[in-house]
Design a protein around this nucleic acid. Structure first.
Lengths: 289, 289
DNA sequence: CACGAACTGTATGCAGGGTACACAGTTGTA
DNA sequence: TACAACTGTGTACCCTGCATACAGTTCGTG
């Protein structure tokens, strides 16, 4: 359960383990890096523990990998501190020596899943092909780790790998003549859409899976999305939806192949919109005509 | 916690209250409406209990309204069956006489928040103005009920009010000459983007609020998103982001006004893309020129 | 009218969640 | 050698959603 409520617990007396304050103790600019907000420091590799205690039997990396493994297999719901600890053969509370909270672990998982973005190269030629490729890659990641679409995702992602990926996306727009602001906005738009689409696809798939599982024992017929629409949507109340529902085939959403096409359709529309923006900017730059 | 795991509980022996099976008992087509999957029946007003017992002291409507009230105030995390029951002065379990599960309650909340969509009229002239208005309205709803962005949202929403809203969106595209399929795809694209953007905005705001709350007691400076970017993003590793971060003002995300502009920017891009699609379709229809 | 089925709300209990805290054991440094 | 720092463990607390058993109310039917 992604907690992040911020209301029930008005900041506990401050971190259980002492190692978390290691750098945060230095009040201001001691010459080196200033302290980061909790969560980000670990993400960016700024958190060092002393070396006085017993050998550590675990590592943040192992924990994150185990959590991702579980999430891939059982979904995000399956990821509990107890479950992760069990996977590693440790007790639940031992994890808290490495990770401040479950939320932090989730952030680390997010970042881990974006691994490979660092070495990514876009092969296409021209901004349009590259941007399409960029979106598709992002979508592939979401399909491979569907639990990503269920994460809280506080704010634009500040994880190193995520930023790296954004950087690559910006690179695709290098030669378009857009302003930096427009570039990042386009990236945000495309990314936003991709994320949302991935989320809906995954939710639909999981709902279908659940329905199928229930259907093995239940007497209810296996309602398809199409059938449900036809059942529920009356002609006079929803004329347009009615026409759509009774048209030959909207395409059953469950089958992934249809969904993919729909996603690509959206991407093309966004790319068209980007093209229009580029045209506008270019026309303004050189008012010859 | 949105449950919907579908793995832990492989279909319980069938509904706790007997009223839920009221119609489901009739095996097939008894002439009237066939049984709907659980959850949807209540949503579409097909679920009648007998009239033999004591007066009911509660109603589905009251429950949903109470839940929405809590969610508006404390976020979706604050909505627990116990909390809702407390708000109504009843015991936790009493709610299960009206609602089959928490998931079902969430679906009802979703539908309730889309109320008003039924009477909605788009005032603008031309598909572009209307579609923009449509997106903005949707976004307004999300801003008024931020918890909507955190809901599971299994599959395209089959709630009556949601479908009504989609129907209205389709209506905006009536005179564009697009195919029905393209129309619904455009609606999906725009809706998808709006939802995602609303989600990110809300998450960012809630993260900022949490940071602010923590900042009152913590020694850490109140990191703004911009400041964090500048701190984290090195010039050689993230040249483009670096330039963006150090440019005068990307606009602090927390302030809602900036975010709104960015959202509208995205909407314009999508509308541009739609325009391009319309142009293409029109050109194909009448190959004159 | 009386009886019993149908229905209401309640109380209790379970399995599971996140995590605060006290503790025993291990290690590097003084 | 002593001590501070650190490790992993065990226990405990409060919260979740929900199954189930129960007592009380109401209505349809005999």
């Amino acid at each position: 359960m992604p907690t992040r409520d911020g209301a029930r617990s008005p900041q506990p007396p401050r971190s259980p383990g002492p190692s978390f304050d290691a750098e945060a103790q230095s009040p201001a600019e001691t010459g080196a890096k200033p302290p980061l907000p909790p969560g980000l420091d670990l993400l960016w590799g700024r958190r060092e523990g002393g070396s006085r205690g017993p050998r550590r039997g675990l590592s943040v990396d192992e924990i994150v990998r185990a959590a991702v493994r579980i999430a891939d297999r059982d979904g995000l719901e399956g990821v509990s501190m107890a479950r992760v600890a069990e996977e590693l053969g440790f007790t639940t509370m031992s994890l808290y020596r490495y990770v401040a909270s479950k939320d932090e672990l989730l952030q680390l998982m997010w970042n881990a899943s974006a691994q490979g973005a660092a070495e990514l190269q876009l092969h296409g030629t021209g901004w349009r092909a590259q941007l399409r490729e960029w979106a598709v890659i992002q979508r592939d990641v979401l399909d491979r780790h569907p639990w990503l679409t269920q994460m809280p995702m506080a704010a634009p992602p500040l994880a190193p790998n995520s930023l790296r990926f954004v950087e690559i996306g910006l690179g695709a727009l290098d030669d378009t003549g857009l302003t930096d602001g427009d570039k990042i906005r386009i990236i945000g738009l495309l990314s936003s859409y991709t994320l949302s689409e991935g989320r809906m696809a995954h939710d639909a798939a999981s709902a279908a899976a659940q329905a199928a599982a229930a259907g093995t024992a239940a007497p209810a017929p296996p309602w398809s999305f199409e059938a449900l629409l036809r059942e529920l949507v009356t002609e006079q109340e929803y004329p347009r939806l009615h026409r759509l529902a009774w048209a030959e085939a909207i395409g059953d959403s469950p089958s992934g192949v249809e969904e993919r096409e729909e996603f690509l359709f959206g991407v093309e529309r966004i790319l068209d919109g980007t093209q229009a923006l580029i045209d506008k900017a270019t026309r303004k730059d050189s008012p010859s005509s």
